[in-house]
Design a binder for these strands. Structure first.
Length: 800
RNA sequence: GGAUGUGUAGCUCAGUUGGUUAGAGCGUUUCGUUCACAUCGAAGAGGUCAACGGUUCGAGUCCGUUCACAUCCA
């Protein structure tokens, strides 16, 4: 063979070329008609909101490693890609972008806004897909889907109607979390609680007939919505007040004092004001006591025009009103005490403003009913959780699941397929004409709301495969085999996919779910936009190349967080260089070797060091496959590394150097044996590493092995497998390695370089003479004599 | 407040069902450029495995308590 590799590997240049080669050849397409065993994974669809971040890189590289491996193991692999419309997140960014350009989003019609958003989607969505290509990942790009494309929208509508007809979706007036900034309801999951420094206000409500009752509240601005004061029925100090009437300060409105266990005697004053429309607990109290909730806030959290509200406060922002009301209560001589208090405050995760409980009509999914069979399936072990302890988290949430608010007062998303007649009757149908037919020909208006973005993504595992049509893809690939995703969407996405999958398809959406950790910065801080400590994967790629980045990602142990640091990525670069250099060494020694004409040396006839490296290779292959089959990329890669670096580079290559330098001493057969061994071992190393560092391995395979093996890409060849003929008795090598280590130790002790030739080497008598040749060459000694301890003398003239 | 996880070398982390002398990479010290490779090689230093108690012939591993950190849920 006469193949030259350049002195240095130009990572980015070859990666770009290889990526184009892969893209042009569509190597990774599934074949639904193939009778190969199928393996299917879903790409967690990235939001069309911007650039790819490290979390995406993690999901996708880990998924790619498994998919490439499975493909090389002979599976018909379908990795389904696509993007998510990300209703609320996208709308927020689109509106922000419009504002930045001086356009008030509220001045545009819904049609105009949708137009802008679709342009945004095409632009940003395209960008993120392009970046995924750069990572060298291998989904079936031709099957790319978008949660709002026609097919998926059809699935959403169809399912909504089905669930409505089966009573699993309903519309109801309830207290929900309301985001005053985006003026929409949000689900419980989209609310995050933050502990804030606030005040606990104590003040008196005058009693009808004289006297006062003192209450404590963190939210005095809601007092105009008060419907009662509650006192615990067993509160010895205060229970005598139950049944009397109190007057809301700053007004002359009378409210009853009621007995309710909600009023904890230990908290505050023991008496609490009950504002059913503005507090979840109070709402429950209100239901128990028939208190009609009174809403005193506008949709953007200003005091509204409710009759109970004195003129001067109307239109005030909730926090301005709080201040004004407290000042006026103080002026009225009713304020008794103000305490500092840490207050858990619910925030809208997306808009980053405090949410309000708000009483509105919304659409809900009866999650409790959906959860029952899902819990059962998971209890039966139909889904394997990695790491296992995520099972508990998942189950705890599923068992306490609450109704899922699915309607959003937004314009970007799947519009709810419900129509109303003039009397407010609801008609849910797949099309407007169906709805009209249902109504008996009335004039209808369509519901303005859209669906929670997670509604459509929870259908992803089957909607992308063609549901509601009965496609062959659905039949072959559902349920999917494995899902890699971030743990922070276990409830948002994973749990809901499980519920929907079982409800619609009657089976779990995936057999294994592997939750990886977060990417942190080098100091262990969570990467976030607000902190500005994030690293753009594309920057890392520009600096070190895709393979180096992927090599680092493959170090992610199951379920633990990963720290990003350039030093870690450099390890990958070093490995690539090593692989490049050892390939150069192999080729250098194969110049007079030809795989087609050179005489084959059977393994059993090869020198022990050749048989040893092949036997170690077998072990590495077995270990790698064992771990890959468990989706344990970390230990797979470690097994390959250990073999490649420690066994092949550091030991075996050193063993055989003398056989190439002085072939006359060892005979032609010996050199040929080393050549065969190098040729085979390098091929296996390239194969083993292929899923992890696909670019450099493809390049080396193209240059060295393609012509003789045929085929178009390394990544469609068979993954290396254990070869029984390579398991030979090499037990003597343990002692040899030990002796060589001692000799190297002695060299260091005597400050003799490893290259310096030894004149005589004294070996302990227990070393079998058959190993003398190997030790002689590995230790670079001219003569060997037997003695008690290891010792050597230098060739005269060899410097230290 | 509840639940879960983590705590092993200076740093980042492995350590499979309890079993010889607890491993790797980075960093560090010393030595070495020989013809694949200084993005390298060799040798070394460095650990009471968070603490305490228990089970056991034997515990980094199992059990209990405590401490610290992280995440999720209230």
């Amino acid at each position: 063979m006469n193949i030259e590799l350049g002195k240095n590997l130009d990572t980015r240049e070859t990666e770009t070329a290889t990526q184009a080669f892969w893209d042009n050849n569509k190597f990774w397409e599934n074949d639904v008609r193939s009778d190969k065993k199928s393996f299917c994974m879903m790409m967690p669809p990235p939001n069309v909101t911007g650039r790819l971040h490290m979390g995406h890189a993690l999901d996708n590289v880990l998924t790619d490693i498994v998919c490439r491996y499975k493909r090389m193991c002979g599976y018909d692999v379908l990795w389904q890609p696509g993007t998510d419309h990300a209703s609320i997140a996208t709308q927020l960014l689109v509106e922000r972008d419009l504002s930045k350009r001086g356009i008030n989003p509220h001045s545009l019609s819904k049609e105009e806004l949708l137009d802008v958003a679709w342009k945004w989607k095409n632009d940003k969505g395209g960008q993120i897909i392009e970046q995924l290509h750069t990572l060298g990942v291998t989904p079936v790009w031709a099957r790319e889907r978008f949660t709002m494309d026609d097919g998926l929208s059809k699935a959403v509508t169809k399912l909504f109607v089905k669930m409505y007809n089966e009573g699993l979706i309903y519309r109801e007036r309830r207290l929900v979390n309301w985001c005053p900034k985006q003026q929409t309801s949000v689900s419980d999951l989209e609310v995050e609680t933050r502990e804030e420094h606030g005040k606990f206000y104590y003040f008196n409500y005058p009693l009808v007939g004289g006297g006062y009752v003192e209450i404590a509240t963190t939210r005095p601005e809601t007092l105009f919505g008060d419907k009662a004061i509650a006192i615990h029925p067993e509160n010895e100090k205060l229970k005598h007040l139950i049944g009397k009437k109190a007057i809301i300060p700053l007004t002359n409105i009378e409210i009853p004092i009621i007995g309710d266990v909600h009023a904890d005697p230990e908290k505050g004053t023991g008496a609490v004001k009950i504002t059913p429309a503005h507090d979840f607990d109070d709402y429950e109290v209100g239901l128990r006591h028939n208190l009609e909730p009174l809403c005193i806030l506008t949709t953007d959290a200003k005091l509204n025009n409710a009759e109970t509200i004195p003129e001067k406060y109307r239109g005030m922002d909730r926090y301005v009103a709080r201040k004004a009301i407290i000042e006026d209560i103080e002026a009225a001589g009713l304020l008794t005490k103000v305490e500092d208090k840490i207050i858990p405050t619910p925030y809208s995760q997306r808009a980053q403003v405090p949410v309000e409980p708000y009483l509105t009509y919304q659409w809900f999914v009866d999650a409790k009913k959906l959860a029952e069979p899902a819990i059962k399936a998971v209890e039966e072990g139909k889904i394997k959780f990695m790491p296992e302890h995520r099972y508990n988290l998942f189950m705890a949430w599923m068992r306490e699941i609450r109704p899922w608010t699915i309607s959003r007062q937004l314009w970007w998303g799947h519009r709810i397929p419900a129509w109303y007649d003039i009397d407010g009757n609801i008609y849910v149908a797949e099309t407007e004409s169906d709805a009209i037919k249902q109504s008996g020909g009335k004039t209808l208006t369509r519901d303005n709301d859209v669906l929670d973005t997670w509604f459509s993504s929870s259908l992803w595992p089957f909607s992308t495969l063609g549901w509601p049509d009965e496609t062959p893809e659905l039949k072959k690939y559902y349920s999917t085999d494995l899902l890699y995703t971030a743990a922070d969407i276990i409830f948002f996405w994973v749990a809901r996919m499980v519920m929907m999958g079982i409800y619609v398809m009657g089976d779990v959406p995936f057999k294994t779910v592997n939750f990886h950790g977060l990417v942190r910065d080098s100091k262990g801080q969570k990467m976030s936009k607000t902190k500005g400590n994030g690293t753009d994967p594309m920057d890392a790629i520009d600096k070190f190349g895709v393979d180096a980045l992927r090599y680092w990602i493959a170090t992610a142990p199951i379920g633990t967080d990963l720290r990003y640091s350039e030093d870690e990525i450099k390890r990958g670069s070093k490995l690539l260089t090593k692989l490049w250099n050892v390939s150069k060494y192999v080729l250098m020694n194969l110049s007079d070797f030809d795989v087609n004409t050179s005489k084959k040396v059977p393994v059993k006839d090869r020198p022990i060091e050749d048989r040893w490296v092949l036997s170690e290779l077998n072990k590495a292959i077995a270990e790698t496959r064992k771990n890959m089959d468990k989706y344990d990329n970390f230990n797979s890669r470690s097994a390959i590394d250990t073999f490649f670096w420690d066994v092949l580079c550091d030991q075996y290559v050193e063993f055989i150097k003398d056989r190439f330098w002085s072939p006359e001493k060892y005979g032609a057969e010996s050199k040929l044996s080393a050549q065969w061994t190098l040729y085979e071992v390098l091929r296996n190393v390239i194969g083993l590493y292929a899923p992890f560092i696909p670019f450099i391995t493809e390049l080396l395979w193209q240059k060295i092995y393609k012509d003789t093996e045929g085929g178009e890409t390394l990544h469609l060849t068979q993954y290396p497998d254990v070869k029984p003929e390579c398991d030979t008795d090499v037990s003597g090598m343990t002692r040899v390695l030990d002796v060589l280590k001692q000799i190297r130790g002695l060299r260091t002790e005597r400050k003799v370089g490893n290259g310096a030739k030894l004149e005589t080497l004294t070996l302990p008598a227990d070393i079998d003479v058959s190993f003398h040749g190997l030790i002689k060459s590995a230790a670079r000694a001219n003569n060997i004599i037997s003695g008690k301890d290891i010792d050597f003398t230098l060739v005269v003239g060899e410097n230290k």
